[in-house]
Design a protein around this nucleic acid. Structure first.
Lengths: 192, 192
DNA sequence: TAGTTTCGCTACCTCAAGTATCGATACCAA
DNA sequence: TTGGTATCGATACTTGAGGTAGCGAAACTA
């Protein structure tokens, strides 16, 4: 075991720490111009970075957006004494995140790209949805298909509003969403 | 009033009746290749029509898809003795339509394009969503914002499932969606 | 027969994703 | 100090798709 195991820094020039700058540039560009006009060229220019640098780190625009969203969302805050409080806070949390400038546009944009791009769909599902799904499964003690249904309803509703109107869902409607979803997922309800 | 009013056939060569053929070619191409790879070139080739003929009738790919969806969906069958039956049948109807080959892909695709294209969003909202919204408002006697919320939940959920998995929602989950939505829209409930 | 409009066809424009290459730079190890 | 390696920015390029322009031919009316 004379060789260093895994933590050895690889040879060559180290990467400069511009990921955070690129993420910020991505969100602001998407917010200003919309998803389709937020070209990688413009994002790179806004970040003060060469386009080739972005493609050296992310294999596609979709992968960049997914990483950017992962960075913007962070982990779910699964707080709340009761089951109802926990679900309510999770719904409000994601609604708030989707309402942040650029986040909802980027989410809806990459989601729509994924529809006709199986590879991107796999990335989106595995790297973005699965962590939240697993955390919710554990916190709620629900089987996988029920949590997937929960995510479909909450995220689908919020994205549909965002896509149809261009504006995030207002608080009153988010509250209505909570009121509608909670009884269906109360203990012992919705045995499907 | 010697001039012919409005019903005179316009001069020149009449348009050939290829709309139905183009719609069928659009759905089958989208079904086979997905939305992004269903280029106007391929759709035209499948329909046995020149690309310029398509652009003479529809100003953009998005407008073509919207018209194609209008043709595929047709009017909502608002049947049912009770209010619950009416909503249940409407939900099952749209779930079935979205599950038809090509329809869900086309819907999700044009929806995602609309996110970053305000003009297309306007077309989608005015020509596609509004007729159904008005019919539901009248049939249910609900105010506009409640019906919009209903549409967000139902369509958003179905499209999210379609976008994330590539497959339409199975019947059991559609039934769960009905069970979740109906109580919220029962008479006197959800006063938001 | 003249006028009008659509037809298919071909060529083209524009824009954006993604690739290739190059000299320069930053780091490590001998 | 010197070589090896991988990143950097910059520029140019390829590919693919939406959409347009212009042509002669065809179909209809008056």
């Amino acid at each position: 075991m004379t060789r260093v195991t895994t933590s050895a820094r690889p040879p060559g020039r180290p990467r400069s720490g511009v990921n955070a700058v690129v993420f910020a540039a991505t969100l602001s560009t998407v917010h200003e111009l919309g998803y389709a006009r937020a070209t990688v060229d413009r994002i790179a220019a806004t970040a003060g970075v060469a386009k080739t640098t972005i493609y050296r780190r992310w294999p596609s625009k979709g992968a960049l957006i997914v990483d950017c969203l992962l960075d913007a969302f962070g982990p779910v805050p699964l707080e709340g004494a009761s089951r109802a409080e926990l679900m309510s806070s999770a719904i409000h949390w994601i609604a708030e995140k989707i309402g942040e400038p650029g986040v909802g546009d980027a989410f809806a944009g990459v989601f729509s790209d994924a529809v006709s791009d199986p590879a991107l769909r796999e990335v989106l599902s595995a790297r973005f949805q699965d962590p939240y799904r697993l955390a919710l499964q554990e916190a709620l003690g629900e089987p996988e298909h029920r949590v997937l249904f929960f995510i479909d309803v909450v995220v689908g509703t919020l994205l549909h509003r965002m896509g149809m109107t261009g504006e995030p869902m207002v608080d009153a409607d988010v509250a209505a969403l909570v009121e509608m979803v909670l009884p269906h997922f109360a203990d012992g309800a919705g045995s499907t």
